[in-house]
């Protein structure tokens, strides 16, 4: 049940709103145009709730967490 989760960005849907980086700065940076740069795809256990919040906050639904492959 407690398998690791990986962040995935749908790059076509993403419009660089940047909310994900506000909510999950530990794993997500923004480039100079406001588009996300994943510092690490793997979500550590203690950031899981934050990751969930970041996924829920994306207005384009472009951020997801996958259970399996990175």
């Amino acid at each position: 049940m407690n398998r690791t989760r990986h962040l995935r960005v749908d790059r076509i849907s993403c419009t660089g709103q940047g909310l994900c980086a506000e909510l999950l700065p530990e794993l997500i940076d923004l480039d100079e145009w406001g588009y996300p740069v994943l510092k690490d795809r793997t979500v550590p256990g203690h950031l899981r709730a934050h990751a969930r919040r970041a996924v829920a906050a994306c207005p384009r639904l472009a951020l997801r967490t996958d259970r399996d492959r990175p």
């Binding site: 790059r11 076509i12 993403c14 419009t15 660089g16 480039d31 145009w33 406001g34 588009y35």
Partner: peptide, 9 residues
Amino acid sequence: RQCGPCRLG
């Protein structure tokens, strides 16, 4: 011209 990095970067 679909993804940010290609459109801007």
